[in-house]
Write a protein that binds this DNA or RNA. Structure first.
Ligand code: ZN
Ligand code: ZN
Ligand code: ZN
Ligand code: ZN
Lengths: 134, 134
DNA sequence: GCCGATATGTTATAGTATAACATACTATCT
DNA sequence: AGATAGTATGTTATACTATAACATATCGGC
């Protein structure tokens, strides 16, 4: 599986489609339920598609939610470490990259001889709109 | 429950004890199994103790592992956002805080009107020792 | 002692993820 | 076409993580 996925299988297309149309992160089982009408029957069908989509960078797993979201970041993989801000009210996920954060964490990793790393940065709270709404 | 926990209940003591002696993060069920000999019987006993310990800052939840670790950071709660580097080989967890990372993320949060946030920063990979060992 | 608050015990169930095996599709070579 | 290898899919069963709901016990203040 390359960084830039060239073609998607039928199941991968359907899972990515479900996530792309969602207005909030979806759990694997929520995806399964949505795709039952399309013929999905069991969790492995969803998890296998998710595994490839995540590896290809088209979908991100939100560790603090056990849920998944379609990538919405321009040039996601070229901008250093990706951070997610997740609204617990409306499910809005803002995907962003901060050069200073990436640099500092990358340096910490190098200084401590960590290798083969995957970094998770997730901010959970209420977004501006939902904060105002109370 | 205050930020600085004054006294722990019997169950909280036992759960914290199990985590303090562990050399790697433990899942709630691993804690349960270890404490069965002390009389623990069911998951809620562990989860309830963990909830209080996490709220008090004596234990941290590692979101990317669904596991828990005793706090090992001096003045953990006074140093801004906490980051964790987790070795997938030996389970070593290095807890650290970087002022620049904290500042940049805190600014992003303020600039985007996020409120009531909890931030997760987790680096997963192989620690220096395990990298060398191959 | 009485009462409210907190802690604990217990059973059942919900939610998340993967192992294992069977079948089908696709591409390539002969 | 037929054989073969690799990938994708279907299916069943099970493992792992977390909480709801209710019962009982313990601790303090009054
Ligand atoms: Zn992305
Ligand atoms: Zn919102
Ligand atoms: Zn800590
Ligand atoms: Zn290690």
């Amino acid at each position: 599986m390359s960084d830039q996925m060239t073609s998607l299988t039928k199941n991968q297309e359907m899972v990515l489609g479900a996530l792309s149309h969602a207005k909030a992160p979806m759990s694997a089982y929520a995806i399964l339920d949505e795709l039952r009408s399309e013929g999905f029957r069991a969790p492995p069908q969803v998890y296998r598609a998710l595994e490839k989509l995540v590896a290809g960078g088209l979908v991100h797993r939100l560790e603090s939610l056990n849920a998944f979201v379609a990538c919405s970041h321009e040039d996601c993989h070229t901008s250093g470490l990706i951070a997610f801000a997740i609204c617990e009210q409306c499910g809005l996920v803002s995907e962003f990259s901060d050069q200073a954060v990436s640099t500092r964490l990358t340096h910490w990793i190098a200084d401590h001889k960590f290798t083969n790393t995957k970094t998770t940065i997730e901010i959970r709270g209420d977004c501006g709109t939902c904060s105002v709404a109370g």
